[in-house]
Design a protein around this nucleic acid. Structure first.
Lengths: 220, 220
DNA sequence: TTTAATAGTGTAGGAAATACACATTATATT
DNA sequence: AATATAATGTGTATTTCCTACACTATTAAA
């Protein structure tokens, strides 16, 4: 027996102190006018990884973004016309990198918009469940990984970094202990630049040192 | 566009000091006579979770086993007849529990056999890759989880438990430190029973205390 | 009774995690 | 110029966890 086969993309970023997910407004039945994850059908002779890149590009205009397979969802009742199996993929992006590139190249989706994960609209299909699974997955993989850095601009303050950890772990962290730990990991490059446009003491900017990070993990 | 849709089961256990996986000898083309993961097609109106239970039962005779979704594999070249999307599920079982229940109820698979994961035969499709992904996944989730206990008989010695950790992590552990750590976790119930049939000092048996385990993790 | 094989046990040193509070600095406001 | 505001940036003591390391105890078999 055969089934329809789609890819859905969970695209997360960190902006204005919050985790946000990119959603699209559907322009087709079922769930016309509902918000949904950007996604579409896989072609017959297309490798799944190629389909992921293509669909991501067609639906959002984004290219060359690493996506990780999250899980397959195949409920018979997901779609009124019968089973549609979807494989969900997860991407972490930097808002500054993508904000001017995002545009729907498909008539299938009307507009794209970032929603804080704590304030999602009603979602089509089982897309809410898919986003929740993404967040669970992330929570498990945060610590000591480069996950938080993928969500931040290339230059960031320690407070921003701490906010990402706090959003992902969903708990408060002590500033001094956090900085001690992060410093010990040694992935940070201290820049001689400072935050701009704030009406209080400007924080020093840092960037993520990929070389040091990979050195640490290649021994493992 | 549509695709064929199957489930494959990675069933792991711990036996004779080794991690073993259950494989089936195929009785159908393609890959007739090759070893493969037990798996089959999902029915049209069947929920994926129901399909997993059904296929597991038809292929191996096993029932009521918790299976965790591993990943979807959808390579166009997986199958000579075109794409077959498979969703792989992972189960951990206790050898003593299952060894008398296993039997192929399908003409599709000829015989079932346990193979040490370190000595796999050539496998059909991309099943080797699927098994390797299972082991990677396990390695990441071992520590402080109940994973190792699912692979052991309900009564086990501390040495057996250590062997499971060693097999999953693929490294040697210090006996005293291991016992200290395990004791601190406090999931163990010390029984007043001893190992039998060994020609040396018999080790004390322990069982896993689910209540204590869940208490620890529900705060989290 | 001896041998072989595994069970079972403690301590000291180092590393990392936690708890906790105040002076400093840049800007905006009066 | 003085003041208020809002966030930055820093240290220490305590406890907990991790690691390294070697010998005696027990049982069955020879």
């Amino acid at each position: 027996m055969q089934t329809h086969f789609t890819i859905d993309c969970v695209i997360l970023t960190f902006d204005e102190g919050q985790l946000k997910v990119l959603l699209a407004e559907r322009n087709e039945y079922p769930y016309k006018d509902w918000w949904a994850l950007p996604g579409y059908f896989v072609n017959k002779y297309e490798e799944m990884e190629d389909a992921v890149s293509r669909i991501l590009f067609e639906m959002t205009g984004l290219k060359d973004i690493y996506m990780d397979q999250l899980a397959a969802f195949a409920g018979v009742k997901r779609h009124p016309e019968g089973r549609i199996l979807t494989v969900a993929y997860l991407a972490l992006v930097q808002m500054e990198e993508v904000k001017n590139k995002i545009s729907s190249g498909s008539t299938y989706m009307r507009q794209l918009k970032w929603f804080p994960v704590t304030a999602l609209p009603d979602l089509a299909f089982d897309h809410k469940e898919i986003i929740e699974l993404s967040l669970d997955r992330l929570k498990k993989t945060v610590s000591y990984s480069m996950t938080p850095y993928e969500l931040l601009p290339s230059k960031f303050t320690l407070t921003q970094l701490q906010q990402v950890y706090e959003a992902l772990l969903n708990k408060q962290l002590d500033k001094r202990n956090f900085r001690k730990k992060i410093n010990n990991l040694g992935y940070l490059k201290e820049l001689n630049e400072f935050q701009k446009g704030v009406s209080y003491r400007a924080a020093k900017l840092y960037s993520f040192d990929k070389k040091k990070f990979h050195k640490t993990f290649s021994q493992d």
